[in-house]
């Protein structure tokens, strides 16, 4: 290899190495955390963090096949978010967003 001679010539210089890389990335094991993309961490209806299951679900410890509590988040057109369970009970009494009093319509559901 010609590296040695080249390094001798320009010892202190930060010099580009030839096209042959000394290190190549072969495998990468990355880690990421997911959370609901919400503005407020807690569900205004049950006062529990949206990442956790809502109070009712925690009490019933309702579980799906994998044992995960199936308690997703729902966003309204107003961009406010709540537990889906909490909201579906709420709209039976009052079809408005509890935070901004706009008429409630679902923008999207967590999945």
């Amino acid at each position: 290899m010609s590296e040695n001679s080249r390094m001798d010539e320009n010892d202190n210089d930060k010099k580009e190495v030839s096209q042959e890389k000394m290190f190549t990335l072969k495998k990468w094991n990355a880690v990421a955390m997911w959370s609901w993309d919400v503005e407020c961490d807690t569900c205004a209806i049950c006062r529990v963090q949206v990442m956790d299951a809502c109070l009712r679900c925690q009490a019933e410890s309702k579980k799906d096949f994998y044992g995960k509590q199936d308690c997703v988040v729902v966003w309204g057109e107003c961009n406010h978010s709540f537990h889906y369970c909490c909201m579906s009970l709420w709209v039976k009494q009052n079809n408005r967003c509890p935070l901004c009093q706009q008429e409630w319509s679902i923008q999207r559901m967590g999945k």
């Binding site: 290190f23 190549t24 072969k26 495998k27 990468w28 990355a30 880690v31 990421a32 997911w34 959370s35």
Partner: peptide, 18 residues
């Protein structure tokens, strides 16, 4: 997965280099 956001955790990642 809609409605989610991802936060990368560089402290936990690891790699194999040649």
């Amino acid at each position: 997965h809609s409605g989610r956001k991802l936060q990368w955790q560089p402290t936990l990642g690891h790699c194999v280099l040649r």
